[in-house]
Nucleic acid binder design. Sequence first.
DNA 1: TTTTAATTTCGATAATTGTCAAATTTCGTA
DNA 2: TACGAAATTTGACAATTATCGAAATTAAAA
Lengths: 98, 98
Amino acid sequence: MDIKELAKIMKALSNENRLELFIEILKKQETCFETEDHECFITDIMKSMNIGAPTVSHHIKELTNAGLVITERKGKFLSARINNETMQEAINLFQLKS
Amino acid sequence: MDIKELAKIMKALSNENRLELFIEILKKQETCFETEDHECFITDIMKSMNIGAPTVSHHIKELTNAGLVITERKGKFLSARINNETMQEAINLFQLKS
DNA sequence: TTTTAATTTCGATAATTGTCAAATTTCGTA
DNA sequence: TACGAAATTTGACAATTATCGAAATTAAAA
């Protein structure tokens, strides 16, 4: 991963609403290990946030574009999950060597 | 650390040149453990980059403002180092629970 | 004290972006 | 097939920002 890619990731997380969106997806994933509900539907998240549907759609696309989340259409709904590979790669760049 | 603060950190790292600046400071810090050279002067970094002094000054201030780096004036020069506390706190928010 | 180098401040500009309203598409279901 | 809910696209606008040139400041050096 080069600087340009990393900057893209950071930019995707630089907007407050988009970051909140991302963290909601992250949290959802964590609870999924405990329950059997592996779906994270955007509608549910959207309802609890203070922004309209077009904006959410746009934000989701940016997160996807940066490789941070993976989306999948489930009929009428959109399901999203974290792309752990990208996450770990990005974190590693910032970890201090020992 | 709340979402607003975290977003501020991400925004500080979202610009390509600013991220490069940050990574140079990060690298410098790592080499400091091996050598006796504990100073990271902005001038040196600046010379190897493709942006003017006013812009670098602005970027450094943004990194400082986000709590990512700590600067100190050494006579004519400006010395910078990573704020590891902020770094670790931010990384922890993204680490998956086990 | 004059000069020179590093940094900052200021003002301006071009480019990017977050957001929404309106219109459109997708898809389950009555 | 027609309706309604979920999501996307489009077009637009206000706000933010990255960058620079010029001027000002700070501090070492001559």
